[in-house]
């Protein structure tokens, strides 16, 4: 049982490694956010689940930590993507479509007084 948990933790750290490589390789802010959010969430969840197999007595706290990460991580990446769009950080040249700019709703939001 302990060996299985340790292997799950090892797998989680490989997913975190993929996240960091993707962070260096991706061409613009939005793609980096995609890789950063997904891979770090699963990597941390796998590490903590593996530790819960290794030490069953810690399960309650580890589940608390997992729920916490699952709730907060997408929220922070959503906030960062929104800010990056509204301070006009450019897209990569490979971007094919931008519906938010074409939509009249977006223009109305930008002209709203703070």
């Amino acid at each position: 049982m302990e060996i299985i948990g340790a292997i799950i933790t090892l797998f989680g750290s490989f997913v975190l490694l993929v996240a960091s490589i993707g962070l260096v390789r991706m061409p613009d802010v939005y793609n980096r956010l995609q890789v950063g959010t997904k891979a770090t969430t699963l990597g941390t969840i796998l590490s903590l689940v593996g530790l819960a197999f290794v030490v069953p007595g810690w399960t309650a706290k580890l589940i608390l930590l997992i729920i916490f990460i699952m709730m907060t991580n997408p929220v922070s990446s959503h906030v960062l993507a929104r800010v990056a769009y509204f301070i006009k950080i450019p897209f990569t040249s490979r971007t094919v479509t931008d519906k938010l700019k074409l939509s009249d709703k977006a223009l109305r939001i930008e002209h709203e007084p703070k």
């Binding site: 960091s20 980096r32 950063g36 990056a84 301070i87």
Partner: peptide, 30 residues
């Protein structure tokens, strides 16, 4: 975390550095 430091150093924009910071803190949780 070391590889993420590369992105933190070259950055380009502030948002890039914030993303790198976010990834580093989550990796340090594990």
């Amino acid at each position: 975390i070391g590889i993420t430091m590369v992105r933190f150093a070259i950055g380009k924009t502030a948002i890039d550095r914030v993303i790198a910071f976010d990834v580093m803190t989550i990796a340090s949780i594990s």
